[in-house]
Amino acid sequence: MNATFYLSAAIAVLSTVLVITRANGVHALLYLVVSLLAVALVFFTLGAPFAAALEVIVYAGAIMVLFVFVVMMMNLGDAAAVREARWMEPKIWVGPSILAILLTAQLAYMLDSNTMSQPHHAIVPARAVGIAMYGPYLLCVELASMLLLAALVGAYRLAHTEHGRL
């Protein structure tokens, strides 16, 4: 199991790096799907099979498909990829990288300094998650449904124009 974790973690990080460096939108999206699948595997190794399934279905499935649709609709061709590549000149990476390294260093330092005991990982089955969700977290579920409804209406209104076309 340990090997699975380390391997999938490495894949996740690597493919994420590729996501943010690709000039071609479709390539980046495919790497993002890979990254999300790797994270789903990590979920599985951490004993969260339900979350892993949702990660695959919702994230890698639904959301990424949405992205693909949009990218296809935008019809970003080779010209767009060339322009993307031109935008990513080396010096633009300096500032963000410094910020990210600082952030990582800080979080790593905090993790290193914690005194938590070693893990006792246990599988949390979907049944327990369902009971928790429709028990103490019922209000959160309602809120989430409201949020989704609002997003639905919002997205429809934003993408819609008076003349029925974009």
Partner: peptide, 9 residues
Amino acid sequence: VLLFALGVI
């Protein structure tokens, strides 16, 4: 942490 930092970048 690493994934988040990469997202920030």
